[in-house]
Design a protein around this nucleic acid. Structure first.
Length: 477
RNA sequence: GCCUCCUUAGCUCAGUUGGUUAGAGCGUCGGACUGUUAAUCCGCAGGUCCUUGGUUCGAGCCCAAGAGGGGGCGCCA
């Protein structure tokens, strides 16, 4: 018989239909009430069984985590915690769950503990809510681009280029590491490797996206990205997901408009589609905050933060303007910054970005026109000769969530910059070809999916918003 | 990679100046319960005090090294 999902049952009115529900026990009270969850909703359906008609043996098998099939009628609940409940006529345990061995019990568990049992943490309210939100986020992103006429581009995950410059790379090889083939002069002979050359996992689909954008007009990638950096922070993963739109005939302003529209559109969609899950995560955060000292608490509740973000334009200012603000800021004058802001040209540290976003403007900030020395080779040089048309979007509590730029479309300027920055020009002939043949102004950015998920769920560690986090020293599950 | 804090029951944590038999709450297990909402009530059990070495008459507590985890910083999304 077809099962009705819990989410659907909870929306239905009482009726005489015989319904079947399947799920996992979350709580069993008074030998009579089973709170059943099937992942379709943060809420449980209450099953009401008659203990008089049930053997002790059967009752004993109803433990937290056990899977159950039950049939019966949906009736109005006489309890106060729910509108409807299932008056059970027949039920069976599909899978027993030994409560003395099962790590999850009806009590609060720490996120650190749940991280160690990531294979089971989907079964908690917090992770099921995050999982549903993550799904809605992904769909909202595809919908946004689709509606605007972008094409979804599958950039390669294995790349032969080691010049992307976005960080340390994982090498991909089928060579026997115990018996590596050598050339005559003793180097590793990559001609014997699977692809006949040295290959890595991608650190960015941007360069490939540029190839597609300069023919298809508007494209975006949405795929996994790999960085072999030894990063140990709540904002970094070795394997994460990134969205990288690339648009032909677009400048830096178009790029900022697109990014801001995208972020707001996603937030709006998720607030509509995941109301219940957001409510739950908001309450969860509020409770966590009670345990924290005042200074570490969130200033506003989760949903208020999201709404605030929708209702106000992001603050846009240049790097130079930011430097002026930071120079004259009281923490800088009082020597509170670990890295004092003393001159134009210094790279901004986390503490500076946080001051701008969390103290000075108190909303998302887009910083533009950075010194060329601290940015990548492909960013378009401005007329002033010392800055590039870059933009970073900084979010409260998370820092950089978007990094992008208008790309250098002038062949000679790009070539010269690549040579200055020791980018192997020969290997990158294919990238330069876009500038040789019908070049055009274009722009794009990268949006970190997990960082976005952090902002929307109110979680504080990216390891908690991806199902199976990969980071230095850990690739479990 | 650097700095810093933590590691005591299944989980979250107390543990006095180094002193005899290491505690609590929750959970588990056993019992009670026909309207409960992480139900409630009664009771029992549960420990390699992260590991190794050292100091000491005596170490959960002091010292050293190692392992694991959190936070900050860097790299960045």
């Amino acid at each position: 018989m077809r099962r009705t999902k819990v989410a659907e049952l909870l929306r239905m009115d009482p009726n005489d239909q015989e319904l079947v529900v399947m799920g996992w026990v979350r709580a069993f009270r008074n030998n009579r009430f089973i709170a059943l969850n099937d992942g379709s909703s943060i809420s449980n359906i209450q099953l009401v069984i008659d203990p008089e008609l049930t053997s002790e043996e059967q009752l004993r098998r109803v433990t937290v985590g056990a899977s159950v099939r039950a049939s019966g009628r949906l009736v109005a609940s006489s309890g106060s915690g729910q509108r409807v409940e299932l008056e059970v006529a027949g039920w069976e345990i599909l899978g027993d769950c030994d409560a003395s061995a099962y790590p999850l019990q009806p009590k609060k568990h720490s996120l650190e503990f749940l991280r160690q049992i990531a294979h089971l943490r989907f079964r908690t309210n917090t992770f099921s809510a995050i999982s549903r939100i993550r799904h809605s986020l992904a769909f909202a992103i595809h919908a946004f681009f689709h509606q605007r006429g972008f094409y979804y581009l599958n950039a390669p995950i294995i790349t032969g280029s080691d010049a992307e410059g976005a960080g340390e790379m994982f090498q991909v090889t089928t060579l026997d590491l115990d018996r590596v083939p050598r050339t005559e002069n003793g180097n590793v002979n990559y001609e014997k490797d699977f692809f006949g050359r040295r290959t890595h996992l991608t650190v960015s689909g941007q360069l490939e996206a540029e190839l597609a954008a300069t023919a298809l007009g508007q494209v975006y990638t949405f795929g996994p990205t790999f960085r072999a950096e030894n990063s140990n922070t709540p904002r970094h993963l070795a394997e994460f997901w990134m969205i990288e739109p690339e648009v032909a005939f677009a400048d830096l302003n178009d790029n900022m408009d697109l990014a801001e529209d995208l972020l707001k559109s996603i937030i709006r969609t998720v607030m509509e589609q995941c109301q219940e899950d957001l409510d739950f995560l908001g309450r969860r955060e509020a409770e966590e905050d009670k345990q924290k000292p005042m200074a570490e608490r969130s200033e506003f509740p989760l949903e208020e933060r999201l709404r605030f973000c929708l209702e106000h334009p992001f603050e846009r200012l240049s790097y130079s303007e930011a430097i002026d603000i930071l120079r004259n800021s009281s923490p800088n004058k009082k020597g509170k910054f670990q890295y004092p802001v003393d001159r134009w040209g210094v790279d901004l540290q986390s503490e500076h970005e946080r001051y701008l976003v969390e103290k000075h403007f108190r909303k998302p900030v887009i910083l533009t026109d950075y010194p060329k020395e601290i940015k990548a080779f492909y960013m378009r040089q401005n007329e002033d000769g010392r800055t590039v048309a870059a933009m970073d979007i900084l979010f409260p509590g998370i820092g950089e969530i978007v990094g992008g730029s208008q790309r250098e479309e002038r062949y000679d300027v790009l070539l010269q910059r690549m040579q200055e920055m020791h980018i192997p020009v020969d290997e990158m002939y294919w990238y330069l070809d876009t500038r040789r043949f019908g070049t055009c102004p274009h722009a794009g950015f990268g949006l970190g999916f997990e960082r976005l998920a952090l902002f929307i769920t109110g979680m504080t560690n990216v390891r908690d918003v991806i199902p199976f986090p990969r980071f230095p020293g850990n690739a479990e599950f």
